[in-house]
Design a protein around this nucleic acid. Structure first.
Length: 257
DNA sequence: TGTCACCCCGCAGTTACCTCA
DNA sequence: ATTGAGGTAACTGCGGGGTGA
């Protein structure tokens, strides 16, 4: 199996909604699609034999291979994977989706993809997070898999990417919260100091500094007097490069000493 | 033009199986 | 040999978009 580090989960705090999952749109990367098939076709068709494992056949299935007649039709996507899933439409879909236990001999096959298959799938995922039917069929043929398997792999891969992104976001928000807590603590302390100062010498307000310009952080909606970082102290994932935040003039700060 | 049935697809949630410590 | 946890292939059900009647 492909190690976690190899999953290509290059997750960043990229802010663009379009790049939320750091995915490339098919249209943008179409020219590179053919690069996916740079591996000689016969290599992957022979991989299962070379490795002694055919991911499309359990030992039992292999033993029954002689009587199995649908394997060769699977490239079309549907013949060996009759869709038995009843949809909201109330009818049976004529797609490759879903192999019922009933039609699959009563046992759910759990077939591990080979390292090479996973690597090729990863490569293609980097190019396209989703596949059109043609791409799916081509990839399935290349990897000697069923189109449904390719489809499922991409679905699960998208889910893993999303989960990873959620974890990153969660970590960011956690740090943001910690920084805000610290900032709040600091400000509370400052308020106390100022109150004490006010009690001691009310006339100090006569000597106020000019207005300070603060920046409103759109992500945490807090103000900051530092224009390079958000108020929460963490580079915002959604607006760091361009910060068209409205500067907010606030009360003059007290001039100390 | 609006509506309906149908098809296809992606997603969230879940299950089942496999591997490994 | 057993077992529990983690990873992941596969399944299920739902909602949304596209299309033709």
């Amino acid at each position: 199996m492909v190690e976690k580090e190899d999953l290509g989960l290059s997750l960043s705090l990229s802010s663009s909604a379009n790049n939320w999952l750091n995915l490339t749109s098919p249209a943008q990367s179409q020219p590179q699609w053919n690069a996916l098939f740079s591996v000689p076709e016969n290599k992957f068709q022979e991989l299962p034999k070379l490795r002694g494992i055919d991911v499309n056949r359990t030992p039992m299935a292999t033993a029954l291979a002689a009587t199995e007649s649908c394997e060769s039709d699977e490239e079309a996507g549907a013949s060996c994977s009759p869709n038995s899933t009843l949809s909201k439409d109330g009818g049976s879909r004529k797609t490759e989706r879903g192999i019922s236990d009933e039609e699959d001999g009563g046992s759910r096959k759990k077939l591990r993809l080979s390292k090479d298959q996973a690597a090729v799938l990863e490569e293609s995922f980097k190019e396209h997070s989703t596949l059109n039917p043609k791409q799916k069929a081509a990839l399935a043929k290349k990897l000697n898999l069923k189109p449904r398997q390719v489809e499922v792999w991409f679905q699960n891969r998208r889910a893993r990417t999303k989960l990873k992104q959620t974890e990153v976001d969660c970590e960011f928000l956690k740090r943001c919260c910690e920084n805000l807590t610290e900032e709040n603590r600091r400000l509370q302390k400052e308020v106390q100091e100022l109150r004490a100062l006010k009690l001691l010498s009310p006339q100090v307000y006569m000597h106020m500094a000019p207005p300070t310009t603060l920046i409103l952080c759109p992500s945490c909606e807090r103000v900051s007097n530092n224009s390079t970082t958000s108020a929460c102290g963490v580079a915002s994932p959604s607006s760091a490069p361009n910060m068209p935040w409205a500067p907010i003039p606030i009360r003059p700060a007290i001039q100390r000493s």
